[in-house]
Amino acid sequence: MKYFKKGQIEKIIDRLAEKADVYVPMLRGQQSGFYSWKSYDENYDDLIFDLLNVYSPPKNIVLPQTEKMYSFDQQGQEIIIKPEEIPVEPNVIFGIRSCDVKAIEYLDEVFFTRTFVDEFYKARRDQVTIVANACYNPGTNCFCKSMGVNPLEPEAADVILREVENGYVWESKTEKGNILTKQIEDLLEEKEVELYEPNRFVRKVNYDGVAEKLKDLFDHPMWEKYSDPCQTCGICTYMCPTCYCFDVQVKNWGEEGYRFRCWDSCMYREYTQMAGGHNPREAATERFRNRFLHKLQFFNERYGTPLCTGCGRCVVACPAGVDIIRMIELIKGAEPSV
């Protein structure tokens, strides 16, 4: 087994950072997320490989919250369009958990398949090497296993780190991973170490049959009831590692400007508001329902998996305590109304 001591981790990141922009989990003031190692300030930032996960999901690395697409300049009736050059520096997401790796797999499905390839996403994604940190200690609100995620074996990872006594095992899985291994070879030692036994999950839920069952529950009164506490803010969607919906907007000063896309949320009224005034999902309940149906039924129908990796962030972050685990249980218990 390839192994390195915990004390070596910054050296390893430093080395990887010679050839790539390395994103590492940090606490930064009151926030936590994956931030570029280049921006690490030891007086202010705190590396958090010892915590369960970062609060802000890493999706912004492949799908930035705001992303310029092209700029334009209109002179009289003439117009020039200049596509944005997407930075192509290789980058490494270092220490990402299985749930968030799976989320990137889902984003890949969305942006790479079903007729069109999203070139903006592709330009960023192609440059990413994933160094995952296998999860032996699920948190209080983790339920990844229930959603078909293996916390110890993130499939799309190029390298898997496994925390062991005093250090980490480094396990390369792909050609991209081997390239990183070469880069840090002298920092790794060959050593047989004992892997931890994974801890049990506190929360579990059985997703089997939920997508199928939801087909008959669209008009069920439960949506009205369970959406009562929902404030229709966008926290659940923005904190979700899999939510990918975006808006396309323009910024201009006079005739010059640029078009950008930015994260959007199905919880907002404006999301489906049509220019003529009609809104198919005007009511809070309808938006609430669409979010859960998209995650648990519609995405499954289209892509064969639920759009949830059980990371637990929405469960933790919802100001009103809306809880997807509980929703799944309630769905399972619901009697079809017709």
Partner: peptide, 14 residues
């Protein structure tokens, strides 16, 4: 605050 308690108890905070 249940929100702070959730964050603290779920592994997202020190």
């Amino acid at each position: 605050d249940p929100l702070q308690a959730m964050i603290a108890n779920s592994g997202f905070s020190r």
